[in-house]
Amino acid sequence: MRSKAFQGTRAWDAIDIANMNGTTVRVHWTDQPYRWHVNDGEEVFSVLDGTVEMHYREGGIEHVAILEAGDIFFAEAGCEHVAHPRGVARVLVVERAESI
């Protein structure tokens, strides 16, 4: 599969790549921000195409990491975060199957 060929029909549309013992691997397509959330466990977020502003809070202070193709963001369990793409972005997300 060529991730760059994936065009979602709505923001955060996804293709399931694998489910490994309760851990999912998905390619997401989006052109809109997600929402502030905290995952049930850790999350690996890797930008495949485009640019994403990853907003996250540590100790009540908001930070922003600019992620471009090839960059990875690791959200530890309990890390409040939200992804804001700049235009269209495709991302690989690895997380627990029941995470939001």
Rank of each mutant, 00 (worst) to 15 (best):
V93D: 01
F45P: 14
M54V: 12
A5T: 08
G22D: 07
R86T: 13
I15D: 01
H84I: 09
Q32H: 09
L92N: 11
I100H: 11
E53C: 08
I72K: 01
H28K: 08
R10H: 15
F6W: 07
G87D: 09
A75N: 05
K4T: 14
N39V: 06
D16Y: 01
E42N: 11
H37I: 11
W36N: 14
E58L: 13
H63W: 05
E42P: 15
S99Y: 03
V44F: 00
G87C: 07
V64P: 06
F6N: 03
I72D: 10
L67F: 11
G8E: 01
R90Y: 08
S3R: 06
N19F: 00
A65Q: 09
R90P: 05
R86A: 12
T24K: 03
L67C: 15
T9R: 08
M1D: 13
T24F: 00
V27R: 01
T30W: 00
E95F: 05
L92F: 06
A14W: 04
R2W: 01
T30A: 05
H63T: 06
N39S: 14
S99C: 15
I72H: 05
V44C: 03
V88S: 09
P85K: 02
A97T: 12
L48E: 03
H84E: 12
C79R: 15
I66N: 08
G41C: 03
W12P: 11
M54L: 13
G8P: 00
G78A: 11
H63N: 13
E53T: 08
V52M: 00
A18Y: 06
G78Y: 08
L48I: 14
E43R: 05
E80V: 10
V47Y: 02
C79Y: 03
V82S: 04
S3E: 07
K4S: 15
E98A: 10
A83C: 08
M54K: 02
V94E: 07
E68V: 09
E76T: 10
G41L: 01
R10V: 05
T23V: 13
C79E: 14
G59H: 04
C79G: 05
E58T: 13
V47S: 00
E42I: 06
W12Y: 10
R96I: 02
S99P: 14
H55K: 11
V25I: 12
N19V: 10
I15L: 09
A97V: 10
H63I: 01
W12L: 08
Y56A: 12
I61W: 01
